[in-house]
């Protein structure tokens, strides 16, 4: 839901240069005439994205159960979200998930892409690419159910651990207070890894081969080639990966809802599930909306610097 909302500023940044040149041209009636061509898309965007966004902001200023009479409470809902330790803990959980949804997949994705890049194209690379990408194709709900089994007391995770002599650390991973959040996070890593690998692999293919050749002629090691050729060449792709996965982490809902519902305790409660719970179970529409607005701001604050760092023009 929020991904469509928060993704909006990205294209405007990219298009900024074009808009700036256009502005220097004499403006006239034509510019308004052009509006007609974007009007249908704009209308749909306004109705399905801007209107819900604005009503959410409006609801966040009220105490409302969704049906009865609403009471205007000003910023009280925001104060609650930003001062209640429980609600802050929920936001902190989302930040922890960034480690699993973003850092791990991007790092492993870089590694996988760099390794696969050197290989001649053949069945091995095709198979590895497909295997890595499959999690992206599986609906998150189905993935959540399967991982629920994997992590259960008699699940594959514990069977494997017992098989290699680590029977002592087996546990119901999602029921354990210490391991639940990392366990949920790893599902995210698994889902996002394929996307990152594929994006980065495509990015590598676009890097000028002569750069690699030159580096090798200069006697650069594989590590140096990676650091000085591959990494800089992939800056934009990394930016896209980080942006998409960070949004997935901060706005996560499906995996948590299916596997733990936020438990045990509130160990894995994330803003997405909390918003849902507040709005539909407690019927605190105002507070749910305030949480949603805070989440949106959080996502923007997180991805705008990433955009600036990675989309900067190559000067």
């Amino acid at each position: 839901m929020s991904s469509s909302v928060v993704a909006a500023p990205v294209p405007s940044l990219v298009d900024g240069a074009g808009a700036a040149t256009r502005r220097r041209r004499p403006v006239g009636r034509r510019r308004w005439g052009q509006l007609i061509w974007v009007a249908p898309a704009l209308a749909v965007y306004a109705f399905f994205v801007l209107r819900p966004l604005i009503t959410s902001v409006q609801y966040s200023l009220y105490e409302w159960n969704g049906i009865g009479v609403a009471t205007f409470v000003g910023g009280a809902n925001y104060v609650e979200v930003l001062t209640d330790p429980e609600q802050l803990g929920i936001i902190a959980n989302a930040v922890v998930l960034v480690l699993f949804f973003t850092v791990i997949p991007v790092a492993l994705g870089l590694l996988a892409a760099a390794l696969m890049h050197g290989l001649p194209s053949g069945s091995f690379t095709t198979v590895s690419r497909s295997v890595l990408f499959i999690p992206q194709v599986i609906p998150l709900v189905a993935a959540g159910i399967v991982w629920d089994w994997v992590y259960s007391t008699n699940g594959i995770a514990n069977q494997l651990l017992s098989a290699v002599g680590l029977g002592g650390i087996t546990r119901p991973w999602l029921a354990d207070f210490d391991t639940a959040l990392p366990a949920v996070g790893l599902i995210g890593s698994w889902v996002q890894l394929g996307l990152c690998t594929l994006l980065l692999l495509t990015g590598i293919a676009k890097i000028d081969p002569s750069l690699y050749e030159a580096a090798r002629l200069d006697g650069a090691s594989r590590l140096q080639v990676f650091r000085h050729v591959t990494l800089p060449g992939l800056r934009r792709e990394i930016g896209v990966c980080v942006t998409v996965t960070m949004i997935a982490a901060l706005a996560s809902f499906d995996i948590v809802y299916i596997t733990t519902q936020g438990g045990p305790g509130n160990q894995t409660m994330v803003p997405g599930v909390e918003i849902y719970r507040l709005a539909f179970s407690e019927r605190e529409v105002g507070q749910a909306s305030a949480m949603a607005v805070v989440l949106m701001v959080l996502v923007l604050v997180a991805i705008l610097p990433v955009q600036r760092l990675t989309q900067r023009s190559d000067q």
Partner: peptide, 8 residues
């Protein structure tokens, strides 16, 4: 906009 919700 007026306040959300029914007027009773």
């Amino acid at each position: 906009c007026s306040a959300p919700g029914a007027d009773g």
